[in-house]
Nucleic acid binder design. Structure first.
Ligand SMILES: [Mn+2]
Ligand SMILES: [Mn+2]
Ligand SMILES: [Zn+2]
Ligand SMILES: [Zn+2]
Lengths: 153, 153
DNA sequence: TTGTTAGTTAGCAATAGTTGCAAAATAGAT
DNA sequence: ATCTATTTTGCAACTATTGCTAACTAACAA
């Protein structure tokens, strides 16, 4: 899933052209486990490909998500996040620095609901709190892993 | 928490004036367990108080949330939802009709994470799927409990 | 190589949801 | 009845994202 041929083949079989923009974004995302937003990826991409359009970033991320090559995650902090880790996992969001970390849930939750006739296709669990860099005891300054321009509450 | 005096006192002690708009919205929300959006409440309020402003609805809901009188819930379907049920619970969102139902999680999840030094202040669990009115076997037409103007994916 | 063209990109307008701002209105106290 | 700190409103502004379309180009042929 990381070799250039692999990528080329995957694109071809979905009749998607192997454009420089797609290669760049795919690569950037896979080097990035910080759960970047489209804007974050646009900034990163712009460094290597000045002039790339934000529209293309959205477009491409959408396509990769449809292809199952990445997960679109909404942790409720405004912009959607893009995650190359497509395994079934959940997230912890630091309220202080905005960092997002993967979290595994050990116990499979058992729903307690009257009817019990639901058909569940997706479960999203988001923990909000402070990460180890941000809990008061830790003196270090917040990590600020992901640039957040206007940390909207 | 439902008598008129109770309400008046609560507002007074936070030095909030007991305006007709606030009374109306507080009442509407407490009669409504469908997890309405600001827009939904605005429509409902407009019937009883034509001319009320959407801005006031947002303002008031924000205040009530700060007062701890309601929960603002983001289930990732676009607009925030407002919930008079302030107990610690989670949600199920039907992908077909948009209905949102309360869900209790029986087992307390145990986080499995290397560091384990997080300080968690809030956990949000959102289940997406189809409700009993919308699972294929059920012939009934989708409930359409909450008007969704443009069911954005 | 040189076409040919289906698929792609970039730019910009438009949208949804929500908040900022300032002027007009009013609850509640005197 | 008067006063004034709050509140309400209308509207502009804003963020994140999508729609539309003209210009561009990867991939396949000739
Ligand atoms: Mn993740
Ligand atoms: Mn609820
Ligand atoms: Zn942090
Ligand atoms: Zn349903």
């Amino acid at each position: 899933m990381r070799s250039p041929n692999e990528l080329a083949r995957k694109f071809r079989e979905k009749q998607l052209k192997l454009t420089p923009q797609r290669q760049l974004l795919f690569g950037l995302l896979h080097q990035n486990d910080s759960h970047p937003s489209a804007e974050n990826l646009f900034e990163a991409a712009s460094k290597q490909m000045p002039g790339i359009s934000l529209r293309t970033v959205y477009q491409t991320l959408g396509e990769l998500a449809e292809m199952g090559e990445l997960q679109m995650v909404d942790v409720g902090t405004g912009a959607k996040r893009f995650d190359p880790n497509i395994s079934d996992h959940h997230h912890f969001v630091c309220e202080s620095c905005g960092a997002i970390r993967d979290v595994e849930i050990a116990a499979k939750p058992k729903l307690r609901d009257g009817s019990g006739k639901f058909e569940i296709s997706q479960v999203g669990v988001v923990f909000h709190g402070r990460c180890e860099n941000c809990v008061p005891s830790a003196k270090r300054s917040p990590a600020q892993q992901v640039k957040q321009k206007a940390t909207k509450k």
